[in-house]
């Protein structure tokens, strides 16, 4: 199998699986408890918190562990209930749909702009916020792919997730800058300094810590910037040169997108069909076509970017990890031109 859907989720790293397996045996106790096993579990949680704080340049107490990026996003929006909320058109559904629920006309105002988009990989310019305004950024796709400095980015809130870097699903983070408003989404416990109730997911947080350690030791952002960028760019150039009717939805100019995501449309060939023909060849990708999700509409991100529903329905996202090789790209290019040609030949669109 050639896995090119890292932006959806990354396979759990062996280091993470080992750390979590050990954690289930050694750190099973409730981390809020004052007894020895509880305290040992809490030490491990704090170790992950400290490592993350170092990696994104914040204070450990500015980090709140959550159940994932969607919860982190929900918690920020919930804090600004009744306030003005401005979001970019590229945001994840866990921003856009939640903003619809909480948006009002009171001050302060919240801006929520992701630093890099998940479907296109494109890097957005963050807005400059003024008096009585706050800035949140969903950094889910950025972690491990680029260095992150929440202070330099001027962020008041930031969302992160463990499973995009080879950690477990079910562990997320909300960075909340010291002194900014925060209203807990899950109440009913003293955990996380009363900012997020619920028994600690000790094994999950330990697994996240192992993934962060791997990221730090390998300096994965450097590998993405060079090795992975080259794989992505070779695929982009070969698709454009070898497949008639192809067009890039991702801007691959340096600095315009994450180095590991490539979104492409193929004229007259529908995305889900391409995805499944590739799957039949053991190549795993995703699509912005509505059909794949069972939704009635194609991806709002592709619509915002291209303004063309047919282009959105005909899109495929390739997303790389550091384990991919140039042979993977070559294998894709052995089968993809034939798949697209076949679908174009049976298509109603000429």
């Amino acid at each position: 199998m050639i896995y090119l859907d890292y932006a959806a989720t990354a396979p759990v790293l062996p280091e993470v699986a080992r750390a979590m397996n050990e954690a289930y045996g050694r750190y099973f106790a409730n981390a809020s408890a004052l007894h020895t096993p509880g305290h040992l579990a809490m030490n491990e949680i704090e170790r992950t918190r400290g490592l993350l704080a170092e990696l994104i340049n914040c204070e450990p107490e500015e980090i709140i562990f959550t159940s994932g990026a969607s919860e982190s996003n929900n918690a920020v929006m919930h804090t600004f209930e009744g306030c003005e909320i401005e979001t970019s058109p590229y945001e994840h559904h866990s921003i856009i749909e939640v903003a619809e629920i909480y948006r009002g006309n009171k001050r302060p105002k919240l801006y929520s702009y992701m630093l890099a988009n998940n479907e296109l990989g494109e890097i957005l310019e963050l807005p400059c916020v003024g008096e009585d305004e706050y800035l949140h950024s969903d950094l889910t796709q950025v972690l491990g792919k680029m260095p992150i400095d929440v202070k330099a980015l001027g962020l008041d809130y930031a969302t992160l997730s463990a499973h995009k870097i080879g950690g477990p699903v079910g562990v997320g983070v909300l960075y909340v800058r010291k002194g900014v408003p925060f209203r807990p989404l899950i109440v009913g416990g003293n955990q996380e300094k009363r900012r997020r109730g619920g028994t600690y997911n000790t094994a999950g947080i330990i697994g996240f810590g192992a993934a962060l350690k791997y990221m730090k030791d390998k300096k994965t952002w450097e590998i993405y910037d060079t090795y992975v960028r080259n794989l992505r760019d070779v695929l982009a150039r070969r698709i454009l040169a070898e497949i008639p009717g192809s067009s890039l939805n991702t801007d691959i100019v340096l600095g315009k997108s994450l180095p590991n995501i490539l979104n492409v449309s193929f004229r007259a060939a529908e995305g889900e069909s391409i995805q499944l023909y590739l799957d039949a060849e053991g190549i795993i990708v995703s699509t912005g076509s509505a059909c794949a999700s069972g939704d009635a509409k194609p991806s709002h991100v592709l619509m915002a970017k291209t303004g063309d529903a047919e282009v959105a329905h005909s899109s495929i996202r390739f997303s790389f990890g550091i384990d991919n090789t140039i042979e993977d790209v070559e294998r894709v290019m052995e089968v993809l031109p034939g798949i697209v040609k076949r679908l174009q030949e049976i298509s109603t669109i000429s």
């Binding site: 007259a268 060939a269 529908e270 995305g271 889900e272 069909s273 499944l276 076509s289 059909c291 794949a292 049976i346 298509s347 109603t348 669109i349």
Partner: peptide, 10 residues
């Protein structure tokens, strides 16, 4: 026939 569409459409 000709079809532009997903797997089940084809």
């Amino acid at each position: 026939w000709k079809t532009y569409g997903c797997a089940s459409a084809i």
